[in-house]
Design a protein around this nucleic acid. Structure first.
Length: 420
RNA sequence: GGCGGGAUGCCGGAGUGGACGAACGGGGCUGUCUUGAAAACAGUUGUACUUGAAAGAGUACCGUAGGUUCGAAUCCUACUCCCGCCGCCA
């Protein structure tokens, strides 16, 4: 959600932002509705002032006939009042629907472009591994080591479902736990929220309205969030924090659910794109300050790079193009790790800052030392998401004999050095 | 799943139809007194929106959404959450 005052004063910037993000919203219409809405509001407020005056007269009137006379006048006022209220309600609804569709403009250093092919690589780390034997893909490897059962996964849960088995289960748990420890050491407080959330949390984080078809809904009007970011952000909804408490740094761990409706036919086999997965996720709430947001965004990137580097996996960082950004994202870095069998980098981390876009929707504010109320800025980034990261990990650590070595940092967690 | 109680400002808590944005107490802020502090005393104390250059003015807000009424914190309905009790349960 943006500040309507800002939109009023900078319509061209907003229109340009929409264009860059490939989002169609009629800003002129929004401004027209806003104007009408304010006119209706003023009219209604005048009417209410009249009514207030009259009802005070009724209460004060001693003469019964006098009282009756004013009551009759009030009935008349009520009719106009109802009409004005109805008009305003309609306008307000239209206004809000439009407001929820306006994306935040991308940062100046976000590359222009329509889709992932226009993303720009900012850096890369490590070299794709060279094998002195014919390497296998992760599905072959995992199936031969009895670490993954896709067939029975589909039998139980259908398309895009799977069963992780044996030492891979321990490896997954180790990855999650290790990332938790790593981030706790960096000052993040661990939170294990539940992932079934109310609609406000989905709207508040900017997942809705556009992402509604991507989300599972329960029978009780709750939604299965697609990322731990949702409950983590909703955690402080409608609260006023103290400036001294900022930044709030949380690392969450939970499942995540995605319908993947927009990706029919993409990565259909295996565990790259699944409906249900586990993750750790970093969320930061900081002061309402552009430079502070940028500073934390870079820091979050470093945190995740540290994790991937410790795993010894070659990766690149890309600066996502405007067309690839979600409504609330001002800028986003993705970390993509090299997947040998695909000879491609594949996304494993997503690091964004959103200014006060989410905070406005979720009403998360803080009181400055001088007593002012401001919306916080918010950021989020993946810690580790499993099973996806097993793909590059298992492929990169495969040995000639078909076994898989365990990365050094995980060995003390799993208490074995290789699988197979 | 069943039954009962509750939700009021920064906090506690009163208010069951009219002058209530809300008693009272606590806290906070400002001032007086004091070398300083404490105590005492006096004053002050929310948020959002509209309008205005500003000072200001107006409107709304007593969990949320509707309804009754000339008028709702107060009455009615639904919902959300909290607290008890019974049942069931990893």
């Amino acid at each position: 959600m943006l500040d309507i005052k800002f939109i009023r004063e900078n319509p061209d910037k907003i229109k340009q932002g929409c264009q860059k993000k490939q989002v169609r919203v009629d800003i002129d219409k929004l401004l027209r509705v806003d104007k009408k809405r304010r006119e209706a509001l003023s009219a209604l407020e005048d009417m209410r002032a009249k009514k207030n005056k009259a009802s005070k007269q009724i209460a004060a009137a001693e003469d019964k006939r006098e009282k009756q006379k004013i009551i009759l006048q009030m009935r008349e006022l009520d009719k106009s009042n109802d009409r004005l209220e109805k008009t305003l309600k309609g306008l307000e609804k239209e206004f809000n629907e439009l407001m929820f569709q306006v994306p935040i403009p991308p940062a100046f250093d976000v590359p222009e472009g329509r889709a992932d092919k226009d993303n720009v690589e900012v850096k890369s780390w490590g070299k794709p591994p060279k094998f002195n034997f014919p390497p296998k893909d992760y599905i072959t490897l995992m199936e031969s080591l009895d670490l993954l059962d896709l067939k029975r996964g589909a039998k139980i849960g259908g398309f895009r479902q799977y069963v992780i088995k044996n030492k891979a289960v321990l490896l997954e748990q180790a990855l999650l736990r290790w990332s938790l420890d790593y981030l706790i050491k960096k000052g993040f407080s661990p939170l294990r929220p539940t992932i079934m959330v109310k609609e406000f949390a989905m709207i508040g984080t900017g997942m809705f309205p556009r992402g509604k078809k991507e989300t599972y809904e329960t029978n009780d009007n709750l939604f299965l969030a697609g990322t731990t970011e949702v409950p983590l952000m909703a955690y402080h909804a409608n609260e006023v924090l103290k400036e001294e408490e900022l930044p709030k740094k949380y690392v969450g761990i939970s499942e995540a659910f995605r319908r993947e409706v927009g990706s029919y036919g993409k990565d259909t086999r295996g565990i790259l794109r699944v409906h249900e997965f586990w993750q750790t996720e970093q969320v930061i709430l900081c002061k309402n300050n552009e430079n502070e947001s940028i500073r934390w965004h870079e820091q979050l990137l470093k945190d995740s790079e540290g994790l991937v580097q410790a795993l010894g996996l070659p990766y690149r960082v890309i600066n996502c193009c405007a067309g690839d950004l979600a409504d609330g994202q001002v800028k986003r870095y993705d970390i993509e790790i090299w997947v040998p069998s695909q000879e491609k980098y594949r996304e494993t981390h997503s690091d964004s800052y959103l200014f006060d876009f989410q905070a406005r929707r979720l009403n998360i504010r803080y009181r400055t030392k001088t007593g002012q109320l401001k919306f916080v800025h918010s950021l989020n980034n993946t810690g580790i998401a499993v099973p996806r990261i097993l793909i590059p990990l298992i492929e990169s650590y495969q040995q000639k004999d078909g076994s898989v070595k365990v990365p050094g940092v995980l060995q003390k967690y799993v208490r074995f050095k290789k699988i197979g």
